[in-house]
Design a protein around this nucleic acid. Structure first.
Lengths: 340, 340
DNA sequence: CGAAAAGACCAAAGCGCTTTGGAAGACTCT
DNA sequence: AGAGTCTTCCAAAGCGCTTTGGTCTTTTCG
């Protein structure tokens, strides 16, 4: 059932039927009702391909997915997706993932914009002076950045959490508890979130005249194994830290294992705080020693970004507003006063 | 730059240019070269919306993503996606995720087929007599099932791993080691994979005249917490098992924690084998006691399914061939002879 | 009461591609 | 030389929608 048939059946022109269905004002309310009713009865659904060709609107949001044998999509993505999908569903939006060579995402961005494949895109895991952000901004497609870049010479819309504030609070607490040697097991420090976290820790230490020692900061992909290795390295050195801030729950698993392997105890020998993105399948309160965390639901962020994307597509939102969400600091048993 | 302009520029008809570009035979090779050359020089890219409208081909594969506040997309998905994306990239395929109410995916399947939004779809986590499989089969869109359904009155193409065989081998090994009381901590037993795993365990036990005790099988969402709970329940009962087969590495984390909480030891008091989908961020060899596993890379499965989907779209593959991949049994320190 | 404005509808022109159904010219063959 | 066959190209008809630029009534108002 297409528009032609439907309009023929109603003895109206395609124009009128189209307008009636799309809520244009220049059609009699009575007629509109008839049209809508008939459309529903016959299950008429405008062909999206045709609509797309005519309007350029696709009803889809895009994401360029870096891939490659050496590239691991991290498990945060799926949680983010849950939130995004949940919102998108209620607004009849689909999400298209365009796989791209991790080292050449630019081509793909250009393609999806040139081809008008999506109405908007989001960008995640931004880095300082992120080229993707600059590109997408220049290309003029609506977008939202999940996280922040830095050092770009223009403003852009983003939704981020207060990584610096979160790690500042965490470190401040540890310092207050008497810890003097803190360490940070961070994610990939080419990404802004990791930079912000380190900055937060340093700022808290500086306020008490302390510093983050040279060998006391690690930057690694967030795997259990890397958490383990980093913790071993830190704890086996002569000026081992008495407290660790850790960028991910998965890494924290490795830290806990290292601590155990070394015959140490949390929190007696080591205090530990990790960032929790709120996975349903791994909860900090269920660690053998319940883990203190900086907590922020990445799922909620996904939903929010979908919401903003939808608003931008429909023209309800514009401009370069950035929003920064506060992060909860949740104290559990894994922190205690510094050992004597 | 569109076809009209390009053909005008070449003093050829749109027909000829289109045919030259799409490799049709009825065009002079010399002309074809000229056309291709000019297209490249002017960066001509056919508008996909227009092509879609004309041909119905979209260059996209679809996945209906169950969403909802209570629905957790599991982290396997992201690993699967890595593989799928990796292949899709090399074939210029995009993936569209259509979020759907978890309780009403049918509407969404109908929509994406009726709207010709994608060229093919894949279905994951199938259940016995899965309605999605029946629906998609009836709708006539190319598809591949990742996993298997059962009790459907038609054949369909799928790629699955030998879950039954894997758990049969695992259980057989444990029995050989003298274990008489096995338990199974399984995933959601409404899904076929879980049913197959249970079947495998039961078959191995039966071969030695043993059974899987009433209280010795758990079926739960695969979270660390559920693994912990299940293990506690099992180990605290009077006829506690001396060996556990576990459907996921994440659950195994919980099992390990429970064992530790109870003051028991692996493998002295309990042997443990889990299924490993091969995550880059959590490896069985890195468990405090290295974990024996049944191993199969879900990422490879993703790539394979993308490959088959592409083959189906281009007509290279047809029919209902199902393929079942063998699963490796990898022995590590978490298994030992049954305690005296 | 006549002119202007508003209301309700329509025909047809895109959007940019593929594909059908020729047509013109070059070649082969008897 | 004329008939038949390739080869190579083209005009135009879709695909199914939106939107421009009207027309024809009806209402409003000085």
């Amino acid at each position: 059932m297409n528009l032609k048939q439907l309009s023929h059946m109603l003895a109206l022109s395609q124009t009128t039927v189209s307008r009636a269905l799309n809520g244009y004002p220049e059609v009699n309310e009575e007629t509109r009702r008839r049209v809508i009713d008939a459309a529903k009865r016959h299950g008429y659904r405008p062909n999206p391909s045709a609509r797309r060709l005519a309007t350029g609107k696709t009803g889809m949001i895009g994401y360029v997915l870096p891939t490659g044998a050496a590239v691991d999509i991290d498990p945060h993505f799926v949680e983010f997706l849950s939130g995004l999908g949940d919102y998108a569903r209620s607004h009849e939006l689909d999400l298209v993932l365009s796989p791209a060579d991790a080292d050449d995402q630019e081509t793909t961005y250009r393609r999806i914009v040139a081809n008008r494949q999506v109405d908007a895109v989001y960008i995640s895991s931004p880095r300082p002076a992120d080229r993707r952000v600059a590109l997408v901004n220049a290309l003029g497609i609506p977008f939202i950045v999940h996280g922040r870049s830095e050092g770009l010479d223009f403003d852009y819309p983003f939704t981020d959490i207060d990584n610096e504030g979160a790690f500042h609070e965490a470190a401040r607490l540890l310092v207050q508890l008497g810890h003097r040697r803190l360490a940070l097991i961070n994610g990939d420090d080419r990404e802004t979130f990791a930079i912000h976290r380190e900055r937060g820790v340093r700022r808290a230490l500086a306020a008490s005249g302390l510093v983050l020692g040279e060998g006391h900061v690690c930057s690694l992909a967030m795997t259990e194994e890397n958490g383990y290795r980093a913790a071993r390295r830190l704890l086996e050195q002569s000026d081992a830290p008495t407290a660790i801030a850790c960028s991910s729950l998965i890494m924290a698993l490795g830290v806990v294992r290292a601590v155990r392997d070394l015959g140490l105890t949390i929190p007696d020998d080591l205090s530990l705080i990790a960032h929790d993105d709120v996975f349903p399948w791994l909860k900090p309160e269920n660690f053998s020693v319940p883990l203190s965390t900086t907590r922020s639901s990445i799922r909620l962020a996904g939903a929010r970004i979908a919401e903003r994307l939808a608003a931008r597509i429909s023209g309800l939102e514009e401009g370069a507003r950035g929003e920064v969400w506060p992060v909860d600091l949740v104290i559990r048993r894994s922190v205690a006063g510094a050992p004597a």
